[in-house]
């Protein structure tokens, strides 16, 4: 993207665009930083559930008409990702693009890329659309492990069974008495988009629901949560 376009986008009088991140040296505090600080660091043996925050990412809400080629092609040009179908997601190494509503998608990715991505999108998109930076207002929580699905069954009324919720599917639903957007990112791994102000409640809810399955508050090492056979055996309450 050229400097000229960059400047033009930034100085647009139609839409207010803003670099929202400080230059350097200013500490950011994620919505769950306090929980991370106070959490016990001793992971149990053979955890059934892993829970951690994937903090300080870029979150951009995209609004537009999927039938408008300028919009659909523009999103793909800017993100490298095709607009996902209903209740689906597409992702590459950096970015994930999730269907939220017929005219809304959520783009998440590296935390320092919000402005660059917004400008790139605005440069590429045409027609009636909107890009909204919502990164300060929500965070990503990762839930993994052989009993992650059991924790979700305790928390959400939505059917999280393999047959109804394959990898890649995205669903916004009730969680406890709050809500979250669930994306299945692996056989035993889920990403939850939660609102900042509710994050503490949701975190405590998930920790509570995980108690009987041995909870680790660390990201699992490669392969630790891949034990599918073990999961089925360990899940007499699941259907």
């Amino acid at each position: 993207m050229s400097e000229a376009i960059n400047k033009a986008v930034l100085e647009s009088t139609q839409i207010a665009i803003m670099e929202q991140l400080p230059e350097t040296g200013v500490p950011a505090r994620s919505p769950l930083a306090h929980q991370q600080q106070t959490a016990s660091r001793t992971a149990p043996e053979n955890p059934g559930v892993y829970l951690w925050e994937s903090a300080l990412k870029t979150h951009l809400a995209l609004r537009g008409d999927a039938n408008n080629a300028d919009f659909a092609n523009g999103v793909e040009a800017a993100t490298g990702l095709a607009l996902p179908e209903v209740l689906q997601s597409n992702h590459n190494n950096e970015w994930a693009l999730s269907w939220i509503a017929p005219d809304e998608w959520l783009l998440t990715g590296p935390g320092d890329q919000a402005l660059a991505m917004e400008m790139s999108l605005r440069e590429q998109l045409g027609g009636h659309y909107a890009v909204i930076n919502v990164g300060g207002g929500q965070t990503l929580v990762r839930l993994a492990g052989p009993r992650a699905r059991s924790v979700l069954m305790k928390s959400c009324p939505y059917d999280v069974h393999d047959r109804n919720f394959p990898v890649g599917k995205v669903v916004n639903t009730v969680l406890g008495k709050s809500q979250a957007t669930l994306r299945r990112v692996g056989d035993d791994e889920w990403e939850l988009v939660v609102r900042r102000s509710f994050a503490d409640y949701i975190w405590r809810w998930l920790v509570d629901a995980s108690q009987e399955y041995r909870l680790s508050l660390e990201q699992p090492t490669q392969g630790a949560s891949k034990n599918r056979a073990g999961r089925l055996q360990a899940s007499p309450v699941e259907n």
Binding site: H128, G135, G137, Q138, R196, S197
Partner: peptide
């Protein structure tokens, strides 16, 4: 009307 509305309540302190 061409308008999109999104909550940013939690985004701003």
């Amino acid at each position: 009307l061409e308008v999109y509305m999104n909550t940013v309540t939690d985004h701003w302190a």
